[in-house]
């Protein structure tokens, strides 16, 4: 059985001007030791999906349907206290801005040790030793001295290493990393991505990597999910996705990125802009920007269908399936 099993998850935001279906019925599995990427642009719902799994969605948002099975239990049915114990101990999260996730007036070593002590009965000395080991594990040089420094004494890349150290403190089986390298310089990005891969190899933790960057996906992930406006449009093993992208949106995303290994005169941009989430097109949500749009796309929302080993796509080009949109 998969470590994480998300089924028909729906998270909606109830605003004054209407309901935004930020995550609108997504299903996927994550295996132990696997790095799964969720890629999408703004409004795709990738971050809301990860927050929903952690049960961290705030008002006016709410998980309105589906289930999230993790190590055999449905997280959406757990009480607050049970969920709090699980977070940190079995699953942890790494965010985009490492600087804002730390308390600026407490020494970094104290903060990591506190994470350990709040979940386990250990002595101060033992917590401190484990903190030191963790800092070394994530590649912070001179950990002995730096354990007693404050967050502002660390660079962005080193802070992100600290956040990852904190995330690993209790050996969780799942790490959710939401744009973990977006705020970092490219040489530092490479270091952090290498670190995530190394940690997966040594600890066998699964990683759910949320990103907008197809390059990060290609370098790091085993499998990829592409989201657009709250829905999964394509899912495939990483090499398959880059070799044979099926969905016109995935094709457009890949065409939009300047290639580093060949010179092109023009980029194959996707026309138009991402619609306002309150004005989502009926039928296929990509229909108003799709270069291969057909009649059916305007009123039937396509369902994911299998087009190859581990490869699913939601597009009418590969056979018509799906449900007629109620509003169409």
């Amino acid at each position: 059985m998969a470590l994480l099993q998300v089924t028909d998850l729906k998270t909606h935001f109830f605003g004054r001007r209407g309901v935004t279906k930020a995550v609108d019925g997504i299903s996927f599995d994550l295996e132990r030791g696997e790095i799964l990427g969720i890629v999408g642009e703004s409004g795709s719902g990738k971050s809301v999906a990860s927050l929903s799994i952690m049960r961290l969605v705030d008002h006016p948002g709410r998980v309105v349907g589906g289930s999230v099975h993790f190590e055999g239990r449905d997280l959406l049915k757990l009480g607050r206290e049970e969920m709090r114990t699980l977070r940190g101990r079995r699953m942890s999260m790494v965010f985009q801005e490492p600087g804002t996730s730390m308390n600026p007036v407490l020494k970094v070593g104290f903060q990591i040790a506190e994470a350990i002590r709040s979940h386990e009965r250990v002595s101060n000395q033992e917590a401190r030793e484990r903190t030191m080991d963790l800092m070394e594990l994530v590649g912070i040089p001179d950990a002995k001295r730096r354990i007693d420094q404050y967050p502002h004494q660390f660079s962005g890349g080193m802070l992100q290493r600290l956040m990852i150290a904190m995330g690993l403190a209790l050996s969780p089986s799942l790490i959710i990393a939401d744009e973990p390298v977006t705020a970092l310089d490219v040489t530092i990005q490479a270091q952090i991505l290498d670190l995530l891969r190394d940690l997966r190899d040594t600890t066998d933790a699964a990683v759910l990597l949320i990103t907008h960057d197809m390059g990060v996906v290609a370098e790091t992930c085993d499998r990829v999910i592409v989201m657009y406006l709250g829905k999964i449009v394509e899912e495939a093993p990483v090499a398959e996705l880059f070799d044979h992208p099926k969905h016109p949106y995935t094709q457009g995303l890949l065409g939009s990125i300047p290639k580093i290994d060949e010179k092109q005169e023009w980029l194959a941009a996707i026309p138009g802009t991402i619609p306002n989430p309150l004005e989502v097109p009926t039928g296929c949500r990509f229909s108003n920007r799709c270069p291969q749009v057909m009649d059916v796309c305007h009123h039937v929302s396509p369902e994911l269908q299998v087009v190859g080993p581990g490869h699913r796509v939601a597009c009418h080009l590969y056979g018509e399936t799906g449900t007629v949109d109620a509003d169409a």
């Binding site: 490479a190 090499a239 580093i260």
Partner: peptide
């Protein structure tokens, strides 16, 4: 260090 959009080209980096 540039992430290459080709998973078959995961290379050794000049770290």
């Amino acid at each position: 260090a540039i992430p290459v959009t080709n998973p078959r080209l995961r290379r050794e980096r000049v770290r």
